[in-house]
Amino acid sequence: MDPKIREVSQIFERFKAAFVRKDFDTCNNLLSQLKVMLTAFKSLPPLFEETPNAVHELTLARDIYEHAVVLSVKIEDQDAFERDFFQLKPYYTDARGRIPPSPQEYPILGLNLLRLLVQNRIAEFHTELELLSPSALENPCIKHAVELEQSFMEGAYNRVLSARQTVPHETYVYFMDLLAKTVRDEIAGCSEKAYDSLSVNDAQKMLLFSSEKELHEYIKEEHPEWEIKNGFVFFQRAKESIPQKEIPSLQLINQTLSYARELERIV
């Protein structure tokens, strides 16, 4: 075996051992070493040179990046997740014909979809979705994320929350927890518009708080304009639009002048 590959494999083994021990600091250090060493392999993206060890190197590198992505979830670092995922992606797309597919592919792609959903990057979510084949959409990991997005768009937040119990993969829990926070903000935003008032009890239930104290804290921090009186939460209804009595004169003058100018050009 090529000495370079052997060296990388050895460090990777140490990385995996540390990973099982949940010694994430060591993992991080080893990972940076690994990433630097991977740059020496010419068969990896973007060069894709046809070296004799290409298949081995590609598989090894893909394995390393897959672990890197999972590690970033464990240490709850979303930026690292994004970076590692983008480094991993070419192995799934461009190297598809060169190496056998990875069993981790769909869980990781689903994880990425979930991340985009949590960060409310819906446009990118759909862009990624277009890249998946119809058979991939049937995969439970992907399907989970797709259904979440639908429920989220519809406003069926209960379904989003209950989906936490049915996560297809243990790494998903982290993002599901984040999603619960996003959902709470959404519900708060919707309730504000939809209700005149809610009893404190109902509000607490609806916003998924376990105690009244938490609700009070949340309102103080996020929505200071809400008013709590006689066991009811009153939402300020200032946003109501009263039929406008005033004529927007300046705007009208501007428009009329621009019509005159355009007409002059035509005549």
């Binding site: 519809e154 406003g155 069926a156 209960n158 379904r159 519900i187 919707c190 309730s191 939809a194 209700y195």
Partner: peptide
């Protein structure tokens, strides 16, 4: 479900 869907539609 209906309640949250309606409230989102209102918003």
């Amino acid at each position: 479900d209906a309640e949250s869907i309606v409230s989102k539609a209102i918003r």
